[in-house]
Computed example of a mutant assay.
Amino acid sequence: MNTAKIKTLMGLSSAGLILAAPMSVWAHADGQSISQDALVSAAQTVSCELENGDITTCTKYVVKYVPDNLVIGPFCPKTTKQKGGIWHWDGDETGLYRIDESFLTMLSEQGYTFFNEDGQVLITDVRTSQPASQNTCLQASFDKSVEMTILLPKVPVKSETVTELGTVAKVGLALDGVPIFADAPSVLDTGHMPALDTCGGHIDPGGWYHWHATSTDINSIFKSDNLDAECAIEQNASAMFAYAFDGFPIYGSKEIDGKKPSDLDECNGHIGTTPDSPKPSYHYHASTTFPNLPTCLTGVVAKNNFTTNAAQGIGAHGGAGPGQGAPGHKGGTPPGFEEAAKKLGITANQLFKVVEKNGGRKLDISAAAKELGISEAALKAALPKPPR
C-alpha cells in the first residue's frame, strides 16, 4: 500500500493535515464529534447553565494548543520579496490579499508601512513582546502548555434575539478541534496586522492556534477573488466544518446537492437536510465572501463556554470578552484605550466593550456616550485617533 493511501486511511491528507472523518450519525456535539488528535482528554457530558438561565447538559471538550499533525502558516513574510499568508484589508481598495510585496507597497502608500528600507518586514511575536513601531506584522509563537476548555450545548436552544459576532467574538469549535473566532482586529484600529495563514488561521497571543474562516471551504473564495493562495486542508463546500457555540452545526457554502442554499436567515442559517441528517434541522452555512463565517448566532450559548490556562489572550484568567486579547491589543484593548479610559474615569475594558457594541470604527458616539453616562464631547475628546 502506498504512503498516500495509508495517510488517507489514517485521516491525514498527503500534506499531513487533519481531515474531517465521515459523520453519518453526528446530530449534535458529542464525544465522537471532535478529532481525537485535538483532545487532551476524552470528551465529557456535563451539567451546564445557558446564558438565558436554563440548566441543561453540554459536551465538554479540553483541546490542545494545536491539533497533532495540523500544518499551519505561512503568516508574516520575512521580506517583501516573499509571500506570506493572507489579509482582508478594509481600508482604501478593500479586499482579500496575499501578504506580498504588491500588497505591502499598497498599504505603505496609504500610510501603513510594515517594512524597512531594506525590504525586511517588521514582525512582532505578540506572545512575548509588544510592537516597537507604529506598524508591525504580528505573528505569535506557541505555548505548548496551553489547554482550552469548551462547552457546547448537546441540545441547541433557539434564542429570542440573535447574538451579533463582532471582532474576535466566539463563533465555535471546528471538527478538527481548532476554536473559531470572528473577524480579526482591523489594521485601521490597531496599526498592526495579525497575519492569517492561507487557511484563515493564526496563533493567539496566548499561544494557541485558532480559525478566522471556514478553512474547509476557503479555496473557493481564493478562486472567485483570483487570489494566488491555497489552503492544503481538504476542501468540501457541502461538508460540516464545525459546531457553533450555540450547538448548531456549521456547513460549507453549498447544500448536499452542490447548490447554493436558499432562504438563509440573517445569521446565514436555515432549516434543511444535510449530509449527516436526512431529517430537516437548523444549521449554518459558510458565506461566499471572506471571512466566510456566520455573522451572528441564533441559539443560546453556555456560560463560561471558553476558558484557557493561557497567561493572556482570549479566554485567559480574568474574563476576556469579545475583542479582548486580540493580537496587537495590549492588555486586551487597542492602543490608547488605557489613557482614554483614565480620562473618563472608567476601565479600558468598559470603554472597549461599549465602543465595540456601538459600531467600533463606525462608532455611534451618541449611543456610546449615553451608555457610558458621559457627554458626547467628552467621549470624542478622549478616544484615540485611528493609527496611520
Rank of each mutant, 00 (worst) to 15 (best):
K5C: 14
K7D: 15
G11W: 03
A20M: 10
A29D: 07
G31Q: 14
S33I: 04
V40W: 09
Q44H: 10
T56A: 07
T59Y: 03
N69D: 05
G73L: 04
F75L: 11
P77M: 04
D90I: 04
G95Q: 02
S102G: 11
F103A: 00
L104I: 00
L107R: 00
E109A: 00
T113S: 02
T113I: 01
G119S: 07
V126Y: 11
V126Q: 05
R127Q: 09
T128I: 10
P131A: 07
A132V: 14
C137E: 02
A140R: 11
F142H: 09
K144S: 14
V146T: 11
L151T: 15
L152E: 08
K154L: 10
T161F: 07
V162I: 13
E164P: 02
V168N: 15
A169W: 12
K170C: 08
L173V: 13
L173W: 02
D176L: 15
A182W: 01
S186T: 08
L188C: 06
D204F: 03
W208I: 04
T214I: 05
S215C: 12
I218F: 03
N219G: 06
I221D: 01
S224M: 09
A232F: 11
Q235F: 04
S238N: 12
S238Q: 13
A242C: 03
A244E: 03
F245C: 11
G247L: 07
Y251W: 12
E266N: 15
K279T: 13
H283C: 00
T289M: 12
N292F: 05
V301T: 14
A302C: 12
A302K: 01
G323N: 07
G325H: 02
G328D: 06
G331I: 03
G331Q: 03
T333H: 09
P334S: 08
F337P: 02
A340N: 06
A341D: 08
A341M: 06
G345A: 08
T347A: 05
A348Q: 08
Q350A: 12
V354Y: 07
K357Q: 12
G360N: 09
K362Y: 15
S366Q: 13
E371Y: 10
E371M: 06
G373I: 06
S375T: 15
S375I: 01
E376V: 01
K380P: 14
P386W: 04
P387W: 09
